[in-house]
Each structure stands twice: as C-alpha cells, then as structure tokens.
C-alpha cells in the first residue's frame, strides 16, 4: 500500500494507514484539486457528462486518471489522493464511506457494515441531575 521506500526514508509505517504528508500532498495535488472543485454542483455534473475532459482540465497524472477510471480507491490514495477530498468524488460515484471501506479492505459491503455493528456499544453517563439537586 505505502511505497516501500517510506521505510528507508525513516518514515514511520502504520500498517494499512496512509499518512498524508508533504510528499503525498505534492504528488496528489492535481487529483485533490479536482476533487476539491467537486464542491460545485456544476463541476460534478460536468464530471458525470465527461470525466476525461474534467481530468484533463485539472491536469491529472496518468496514474491518477487510471485510478479514477478503474474506480480503484487504493490506487487513488497511492497517487496522492486524500480521503477528505476523494469523499467528494465518491459521492458522485454513489459510494458512501462504508462502500469505500469495503472496496479498500476487499470485504463484502455487508461484512464491512456488520463488523462496525459488531462493536454494538452505547455507554452513557449523566450527572446533570446531581447538579440540579
């Protein structure tokens, strides 16, 4: 997932967890700039109509275009994508964060959701009544 060179550069490796640092921000700039622009409904429509034209307009790298064409989230991350911006692209593609989770972990969507629900935990404390008394 992370480039193997990260270890040799002395960067800390957290398994399965891309750390969006300056290197990622730099290599991912065009992809993230396109996604940031998806705050505009107009640009979202333009992407749906002709995604190649929008990728061209934002000057995405070939690696980034390929990742977007394949709807390959892990490849988008590897090409410098940041999930806060990619989430806007995911919205256009009709994918929510559970869909993204399933796609990235290779799990079935229902299994990914079930794993979250398996925590099934609610813990509540309320001392406000003490205060009133």
């Amino acid at each position: 997932m992370l480039p193997t060179s990260d270890a040799t550069k002395g960067k800390r490796i957290i398994p399965g967890t891309p750390v969006f640092d300056g290197e990622q921000a730099r290599s991912g700039y065009a992809l993230n700039a396109m996604c940031y622009a998806f705050n505009s409904a107009e640009l979202r429509e333009a992407f749906v109509k002709d995604e190649e034209a929008v990728m061209e307009r934002f000057n995405l790298t070939e690696q980034q275009r390929d990742a977007v064409r394949k709807r390959d989230i892990l490849a988008m991350l590897e090409a410098g994508g940041n999930v806060y911006y990619l989430a806007k692209l995911a919205g256009i593609l009709g994918l929510n964060v559970q869909d993204l989770g399933a796609l990235q972990t290779g799990m079935e969507l229902e299994d990914f959701k079930a794993a979250l629900l398996a925590h099934g935990l609610t813990e509540t404390r309320n001392f406000l009544s003490e205060k009133a008394a």
Binding site: G16, T17, L77
Partner: peptide
C-alpha cells in the same frame, strides 16, 4: 475512525 487504506473501519474502544 479511519476512512482510508487497508485498515479502513478501524475503531479502538
């Protein structure tokens, strides 16, 4: 919470 990467879905109670 973690949205991205192979560890997406990570929660640490």
């Amino acid at each position: 919470h973690q949205l991205e990467g192979g560890r997406a879905g990570h929660i640490n109670v």
